[in-house]
Design a protein around this nucleic acid. Structure first.
Lengths: 228, 228
DNA sequence: AAGATTGGATAGTGACACTCTCCAATATAG
DNA sequence: CTATATTGGAGAGTGTCACTATCCAATCTT
């Protein structure tokens, strides 16, 4: 298959495919002559993976590049690879430009970090010390406690227990197939199930809000009036 | 408080505060003279809210502007306001630039939409027909089914039940205080608890991956060897 | 032989979130 | 009552990101 066909079949413009080739997201096709290269089904699959990560997963191109380097390196174990995905996803600049209530030093932040450590300990989880998700959680908690106006919400433990159950099912469903398929499937799973989780959480929030704030309505949700 | 002090106390540079004023994220201070305006605690609180939404919540500035317009409009009910937040968060360009497997027309996408509708029906949820989270979920599911290499994962119902429980607790914890505080607290809650959820999900995934892929290790997670 | 297509290199685009530079009108200090 | 500093406000400039457009010479295709 030539580039034009790859483009048509994937729906990705040729200029963009060239860009992905340059960035190393997509491996080069097999060069047939100076002006011709042959692409296979693997390229198409890879391209779809890239699009899914970018469009649905909102993973930055640089992160995808880092992920795919690991996928294509046979010496990397699945667990390490998942770690790479986490790093690529959590590529938070760690003190974004403005360092108002900076990562370290802020008392809210320190308290939040302790809370995170306690949660992990409580759950008996094995988590790398430098895992980006730790920072992510600590930052979210610090912001939650620090904005003044923050609702109490459910205890972290409730989140952790629910997530432990779901994550166990997600990860165990990955455990099959050959290495490179396993790799791609694990990545897709990690990134896309996170989006699924978020989307369903939002739906659940909307429903909960409807239950709490609109008796049987406030002019917003006219349908399903008498349902309940 | 003058702008310099507002900047110092919030950690946000003056230039950026001016930018937020221009964009309407932050209300003007009380003009005292042609070159002097007075800012109060409310401005500081609002500024912290903005930073939390941008840094932790990754909400685009345009979305924050839309959200805050509703917060400052007393005729908007809490439920509608939460809807606005969802729109601001899910401001997905709906066919991003390249329309490869476009929103409509794609069979994977249509199947995914049916799956979403069935889930909502099953759970007995009240969800607006045009809710952005519907699209978000449908897009994630379509990508999941369409990449070829996708793990089965837990049934959607499991996610939905877990999220229903958490969302109910989140929303009910918001139900107090005066209107504008309630509004801000609801926003903070929606956005930041989502980050908390995501972060804990990632931690749970890392742990699950460690359990499944490393018997008692692969050279990655040297600590806690004999724990289990 | 004539036109189209290809891979590859280089430069340009638009969106985004700031950030910088000016400016005239005050404040404030000596 | 000057001299210096600061303020709010407006406009243009910056860096990043993910593309997108333009050229080009070397092939294919007809």
């Amino acid at each position: 298959m030539r580039m034009a066909e790859l483009s048509k079949r994937s729906g990705v413009p040729i200029a963009t495919i060239k860009y992905y080739l340059r960035e190393g997201l997509l491996p080069q096709g097999e060069t047939v002559s100076a002006t011709r290269a042959e692409y296979g089904e693997a390229h198409l699959r890879r391209l779809r993976l890239i699009r899914a990560l970018i469009e649905v997963g909102e993973v930055p191109v640089a992160g995808i590049s880092a992920i795919l380097k690991r996928v294509d390196d046979p010496s990397v174990t699945p667990h390490v690879m998942l770690g790479t995905v986490q790093y690529a996803l959590g590529a938070r600049p760690a003190g974004d430009s403005l360092t108002g209530d900076s990562p370290a030093g802020d008392p809210d932040r320190i308290a939040a970090e302790a809370e995170v450590a306690a949660l992990i300990e409580d759950m008996g989880w094995r988590i790398t010390p430098g895992a980006p998700a730790r920072d992510l959680l600590a930052a979210a908690l610090a912001a939650l406690r620090g904005t003044g106006s923050a609702p109490a919400g459910p205890p972290l433990r409730d989140y952790a227990e629910a997530m432990a159950r779901l994550a166990a099912a997600e990860v165990s469903s990955v455990d099959e197939g050959n290495r490179s398929e396993l790799a791609e499937s694990a990545i897709v799973g990690m990134v896309l199930y996170e989006r699924v989780l978020v989307a369903i959480h939002r739906l659940a929030q909307e429903n909960a809000s409807a239950q709490v704030f609109t008796g049987n309505n406030g002019g917003y949700n006219k349908l399903r009036e008498g349902m309940r």
